[in-house]
Structures are given as structure tokens and as C-alpha cells.
Nucleic acid binder design. Structure first.
Lengths: 215, 215
DNA sequence: TCGAGAACTGCAACCTGTTCTAATTCCTCG
DNA sequence: CGAGGAATTAGAACAGGTTGCAGTTCTCGA
């Protein structure tokens, strides 16, 4: 099923791509991001993406399986960047709960700074098929790494490959729970269930519930 | 935006529908469920749904805004039934954690008994627009009620209207967190990220993390 | 340098969600 | 009963994701 030429820059298949091809991919992704920023998921019409990036529709489909795939790729880039930033400037508070709250506040702000784009990628994540599971997993592993780092008050390690698991059993459990709540809250925001501020607020409550002993 | 004739049986607009109309809706929903059970989200082609239920496409669109809307309606029915069952036969364990684990085990089993249908509705939930937020909210409120009941070891109340909030602040927080984790895990399952057994396992871990004092 | 094969292009075609329309049927109220 | 309006129908039409194809261009190894 999962073939060879697909999934550019995936951390799993060695990139046998010429520079010109990488540039094409870049243009495709950039065009998709731009359209998504302007009008969300529906505004990303692949015909337009192809046009804007000076590429034929067929070429686009050579590199990406679907519309979701393009957006998933974009959000993974974003997320990778977040990891880099957090590695460089970790949350500074002395309290684990505060560090986590800050982590999620930053992540949420980073994502929803471009609300249309954020809604678009959330929709792409939620609707993605098994074929794109790899992308999802990468995102997940990256977030876990950041959460564990925040729990420990250590800077996140942006260099070791994602396949290396980090953290104790309990730390990984907490990381999973927080990610689930975050993701699900974001979906709720994207569906118009609640405003964005509530996402951060919910994360704060959740972090306190999970980390602090019962009152 | 939200108009009048839309959203049959919604708990918000008084049902001014003739019996014949209710029957049409029933046939539509049943046909959609059947197709979803057979082949998942993509197999629910609205032309086929209309055909199978002996209704014109236009009529279908008179009662439902979109494909997602039909599936959302179906899953809400399912969920309503779960609430009824739980009201009649609540989890029996003496321990709150065990009652919750059982609640989610039952809910998960009930949903994924028909895996294709489950994937279809999860996709519908995740991708739904603001227009369907009402349906989502109803689902959420119903789940909250069941969770709070399980926390207390009391039978769920299936009769008071959903608009009445139940539980203390803390109980509602726990209910939210558990729902988020559940939903997000299910999405992960639906995307092929992990097997269904893992959903139940993750719920168990999460419930213990949230309810039991730190080790 | 040359030729084979891969990459790319432009474009048409297909599918399915969604919308629209012009008839037709049904129901209700006077 | 009869008229008017709502509900329904069949079917066309439109949009955008996805696929397929025939021809052109690029690239790379011999």
C-alpha cells in the first residue's frame, strides 16, 4: 500500500528527490498554506494550489495522496518548528503545572494565530485515513517529547530521532492524556462549539487535575 | 442561520412534523445506517440513501443539511439508547474507577460493534461544521450525564431535559476530560493509528490517573 | 553526446456532495 | 367540496476531489 515515492520528507523513507522536486513540493505546500490561511479547508482547491505553485494537478498527486495529505504535511512542519523553538526557549516557570500550561498556551497560540489555516489542518487531521497515519504519529511523538520535557523542566531535545521514546510510563501517560484533551478541544473549537480561549482554559484545568493531588 | 424546519427531533425546535414526515426521516436514517455499516463513510452516497429510502434527494436535503448531519443524527440516536440502557442497568461495581471503566467499555463496545458505521460517524463528528454544533452538544451532554452518574454510583437520569446541567464543577471537569480522551482515542482508532482494544485500555489508564491520588 | 525512462504537463473524464427548478401531489382550512 | 400553499419528485446542473492518458521535457548513465 504505502509506496516509495510518496510522502516527501517523511522521517521514514530516504529522500531520493532532486532539488527541483523539493522545490516543487515546497511551492505546493506554500500555496496550500496561503489558500488555507485565506479561506480555510474549502478554499484549498487543489486546482488552485496546482496553478499557484506552477505545477500540474497530476504532479501534485504524485507527491501527495490527497488534499488532507498536503495539509498534514504543512501542520507537521509547523509543529516541527514549535519543537525547535521550545528546545531553544523552554518554559521557565519552576512549577511543572505552569510549564505545561505555558507549553499548551504557546502551541495553541501558534496554531490559531492563523485561524483559517488551523481549522483546515484540524479538519484534515480528523478526517485523515489510515494512509496518513505516519504523519499523525510523527506529530504525536513530537508533542509527547515536548510535554515530557516540560514535565521535567528540561529543554526539549529536538535532535534525537522521533522513533526513540522518551519519558517514564507515567510521563507518557500524562502526555497522551493532555494531547487527547488538547486535540479534542481544538476540534471542538474548529466545529464552532466554543471560543479559542476555552481551549487554553480547559488545558489549564486538565493539567491541574492530572498533576495535582486531590483536594 | 439555524432555521426552523431543519434538524428533526432536535431537542430545541418543537416537532411540527406530520407522521408521514417522521416516517420518511426514519427511512432515510435507517438507509444511511445500513450503508454505513456495510462500507463506512464513503459508502453512504446520498443518492443511494435517497433511493433506498424511497425519497427524492431534495427531500433528504430538506431534513438534513449535509451528509454529516444524517450520520450525526444516527449516532445521537445510538447514544440516547445507551443512556436508556445505563439508566436501567447501571454499572454495579462499588468502586468509582471500575464503574467508569465499565461505562466506557460498554460505550466503546456499543459503538464499535459495527466498525464501519463507527468510523463513519466519527468522521462525521470530527468534520462537522458549526451548523451541526447542536447535535454535538447533545451528545456531549448525554455523555456527561452518564459519567457523573457513574462517578456517583447512581443510575443515570434519562428523563430530565439535557439542558439541565448535572454534577459539581469537579465532576463536570472529569467528565470533560474523559470524553475528550475517549473521543480522541476513537479518532485515532478510526484513522488506523491503533487497534480498538487500545481505546478501552487507554480509558482505564486515564480514569485511574484522574481519579486516584498520586502514587 | 545520445537514448531510455522517469517526471511533468494539459486536459478530459468520472464521481459524488450539493443546489436548483419545474412540475406534481398532498394537506389543510374556509 | 375546492383553492392555495406546502411538501415532494425527477432530473439537470454545478463544484471540486481524484484519476487516466497522450504527448513533451528532463535527467542521468553508458
Amino acid at each position: 500500500m504505502a509506496s516509495d515515492a510518496h510522502e516527501p520528507a517523511s522521517e521514514f523513507s530516504p529522500p531520493r528527490l532532486a532539488v527541483s522536486q523539493l522545490k516543487r513540493i515546497r511551492r505546493i505546500v506554500d500555496a496550500a498554506i496561503e489558500l488555507a490561511e485565506a479561506g480555510g479547508f474549502e478554499a484549498v482547491r487543489l486546482r488552485d494550489v496546482a496553478d499557484a505553485s506552477g505545477v500540474a494537478l497530476g504532479t501534485l498527486y504524485k507527491y501527495f495522496r490527497s488534499k488532507e495529505d498536503v495539509l498534514l504535511f504543512a501542520v507537521n512542519e509547523d509543529n516541527e518548528q514549535l519543537l525547535q523553538i521550545l528546545a531553544a526557549r523552554p518554559p521557565e516557570s519552576a512549577l511543572a503545572t505552569e510549564r505545561l500550561v505555558e507549553l499548551f498556551a504557546r502551541a495553541t497560540r501558534g496554531l490559531t494565530r492563523r485561524p483559517h489555516f488551523a481549522r483546515a489542518v484540524l479538519r484534515a487531521i480528523a478526517a485523515s485515513e489510515a494512509a496518513s497515519a505516519v504523519q499523525q504519529a510523527a506529530f504525536h511523538l513530537r508533542m509527547s517529547r515536548m510535554i515530557v520535557a516540560a514535565l521535567r523542566g528540561a529543554p526539549a531535545d529536538a535532535n534525537t530521532p522521533l522513533s526513540v521514546l522518551v519519558g517514564s510510563e507515567r510521563e507518557r501517560l500524562i502526555a497522551r492524556v493532555l494531547q487527547h484533551v488538547w486535540f479534542s478541544s481544538l476540534i471542538g473549537w474548529a466545529s464552532g462549539l466554543h471560543p479559542i480561549a476555552m481551549v487554553t482554559e480547559r488545558m489549564q484545568e486538565t493539567i491541574e487535575l492530572v498533576l495535582e493531588p486531590r483536594e
